[in-house]
Design a protein around this nucleic acid. Structure first.
Lengths: 197, 197
DNA sequence: CCTCCAATGTTGTCGCCGCCAACATACGCC
DNA sequence: GGCGTATGTTGGCGGCGACAACATTGGAGG
């Protein structure tokens, strides 16, 4: 019996329970004790796997950053045109946020930005973005600046969706999300004008 | 003596203390009891002014949305070209977020989106955005879609700055923030291409 | 096969918090 | 000038994060 005393994979079970709790009650609705209760262990058991509540959130964020980088890579395979690659990354970014709203929110939670482990977790997905945007603007341009620009719109769109500033019924399937993201790209291309009138 | 028993403006004093606490310790670091302690009243006094902790956050968000709309309006006065007006709104949006990071974060906190009072508070600033973007794309286009596109990039940029994904020293003055926002606009205009290669 | 130890889980506790109820005080209207 | 209501206080309940001390287990080395 694996569940007699030792759980087997209590750490992951706690993470799953935590994600479910956040999905249902929001970030402040997460408590280590409740997660432990769901999993069926005592209220102090989580501390054998996480130093504190923040460490648990960081673990969720790390998982999320891995998935995000995976999704970004997958979205760009087979796409050759640099602009199309960058756009594909942006679309995948928004789709990831909608598919994993809890992870996305935790990844960009103020309280644990500045944490080194969390920052390192995001470096792979960030590098993907820098590479993709550099390929568009070409050498001679600040790669970080172009990356920031290419990051801003999907990050904003994702946050607007998750905070329900976009009507939920407009993004209730991944096809709708992708279509919305692509229309935003088209709008941004047309709406923003030259900086001189 | 105004401070003998009745405070005078305890509500606003509590809001100020709450903003200071969030600025220092993050959202989860806010407690009504600590805010009451700072102001010098008992731990239950806040409940005479706010039904619960969420109501206090909503009050902060409402204040923020008012300021944001004011800033957006102010940024557009005297600007005639529709594209320039829309860009000015976007720049003002980012500047507001940097100037009032706590308010901005609370305004878009997941836990209280869906709250009707909070949603209504944001309607004025949202309407400004819809009007400004509609004027750019002209009639015949979906005004909400163009607004979403115009909202995405400043919202994303603001969030990236506040979560320190942009190096803080790159945005430590309002001039730098404005310059960054305008360069992002220029990048978006140039980097995003036609959807067909 | 056995022993022992490090990893894992439990019980108990402390202080803080959100929230409520019961009580106290003070301001303003008649 | 008295009184009612708004405002503030004290006390208390249950839940939480975190730590300490103790209990159980499984596996590595003999």
């Amino acid at each position: 019996m694996k569940d007699a005393y030792h759980h087997g994979d209590l750490r992951q079970a706690l993470l799953d329970a935590a994600v479910a709790l956040i999905a249902e009650h929001g970030l402040h609705g997460l408590s280590l004790r409740e997660a432990a209760r769901i999993v069926g262990v005592s209220h102090a058991a989580p501390y054998r796997h996480f130093a504190d509540k923040n460490a648990m959130l960081i673990a969720i964020a790390q998982q999320g950053f891995e998935w995000l980088a995976d999704a970004g890579e997958a979205a760009m395979v087979g796409v050759d045109d640099p602009r199309q690659r960058l756009n594909a990354y942006g679309v995948a970014y928004v789709r990831f946020a909608v598919a994993h709203p809890v992870h996305f929110r935790v990844m960009f939670t103020e309280e644990l930005t500045g944490d080194e482990a969390s920052a390192r977790a995001g470096s792979r997905s960030f590098q993907l973005l820098v590479d993709a945007s550099s390929a568009v603007v070409g050498p001679g341009h600040d790669p970080d600046l172009s990356a920031v620009a290419a990051w801003s719109w999907p990050h904003g769109l994702a946050n607007l969706i998750l905070t329900r500033r976009i009507p939920p019924e407009a993004v209730d399937t991944s096809e709708k999300v992708e279509a919305l993201a692509r229309r935003v790209i088209a709008q941004l291309d047309g709406v923003l004008g030259p900086t001189d009138p």
